[in-house]
Design a protein around this nucleic acid. Structure first.
Lengths: 201, 201
DNA sequence: CGGCTTGTTGAACGAATGTATAACAAGGGC
DNA sequence: GCCCTTGTTATACATTCGTTCAACAAGCCG
């Protein structure tokens, strides 16, 4: 009886994605403290050495998990905007509302975010990654705001304010889902957006 | 020649406070990953066993550090409000502005916050502590908003929105102080507050 | 001044960590 | 069908971790 293969040779990119997914699962289940090389490798059904092979360390793997999660968030937001049709205000509303609904307002996603944040202060390269991704998020929002008639003079500050509002709601919603439900958060965000963009008139 | 005492016997509360301060310093310098029992004890100039003696574990010490930091924040906010005089709008402005100025908008403070957040998901008791402190923060804001004529029907949602705005600005300001300066953040918060509380009219 | 309480130490323990490396085997190329 | 590349494993190693505990001494009380 032929013994089944001891392991499978995976495509490097697929393997990387698998490790990133396992890292996110461990972070969600045990928090940043439990995200050791061994725990993630076990979660992925893989030898501990592989993480060092592909990423060199847990920090880089967490950063990659954050980047992957950010890409998924961006894709979800773009899809929501695209589904909203051509009307500028509907597109902006969709962008903001989608940020506070699944799969973005996901308590497990927060674990990845927090693990990443905990690296920002000590690691300049990770701080740079954060700044870049935050900048892209705000830039996308600035375009949507501009389409809604927000004048260029207050475009930056309005985008910062709306981003802060959405981020603050998202954070609290993920930290304690019992405090208020997703629908209420989305409603508050919509009303808040209403108020913030009508200031310049 | 009399050898100087090997150690000093401290008042339990003073010792606890000293350990909490050392914990905050280590968190600020090395992040949540470097906050080990030994590192904190060395920072406090104390034997590792003392942390177990007083707190039982690092988690409880982090939670105590968070509670202590929250108490300092609350005191600073109350002082800012008291210094603003009797005018309701001035008091509200002071409350919001102070949240985005030193010593509250402190990059080192964020380290304690993040370390605490990273425990919320895995530990129900710490989640409860978070909910309670967040609730007190919002309740204080609701009182100030009520004094400014915000009708009871939208008091809760307005407080949530303003809290989210301030939290989001505070978080981003601490995460990357280079992105925008504290003065700009305070100005955005003031304008945003303006917009959010004039919605109900 | 002597005894007693207890805050504090320092070392010791096993468990868990990250990293490095030699051996292995899967799967494609010749 | 064999070889060769390299993805993968498993082990070994030195650290570092949290916890425990017996011994110590600082300072109060009588």
């Amino acid at each position: 009886m032929a013994s089944q293969p001891a392991f499978r040779r995976e495509d490097p990119d697929a393997r990387r994605a698998s490790l990133i997914a396992a890292c996110a699962r461990v972070l969600a289940r045990e928090g940043a403290a439990g995200a050791s090389v061994r725990a993630i490798a076990a979660e992925a059904g893989v030898s501990p050495g592989l993480i060092g092979h592909y990423f060199g360390g847990v920090d880089a793997l967490v950063a990659a998990s954050y980047a992957a999660a950010d890409a998924r968030v961006t894709a979800a937001l773009d899809a929501a905007v695209a589904a909203a049709g051509p009307e500028p205000r509907a597109r902006l509303d969709a962008y903001v509302s989608a940020s506070l609904l699944p799969p973005i307002a996901d308590s497990e996603l927060l674990s990845t975010w927090i693990a990443f944040w905990s690296l920002v202060r000590a690691r300049p390269d990770i701080a740079a990654q954060h700044d870049e991704q935050y900048g892209r998020f705000r830039q996308r929002l600035e375009a949507l705001l501009s389409d809604n008639g927000v004048p260029p003079a207050v475009l930056r500050s309005t985008a910062i304010a709306v981003t802060a509002l959405v981020d603050g709601l998202w954070l609290e919603l993920c930290l304690s889902p019992e405090t208020f439900e997703a629908g209420e958060a989305a409603a508050i965000a919509r009303d808040g957006l209403d108020a913030l963009i009508s200031t310049g008139r």
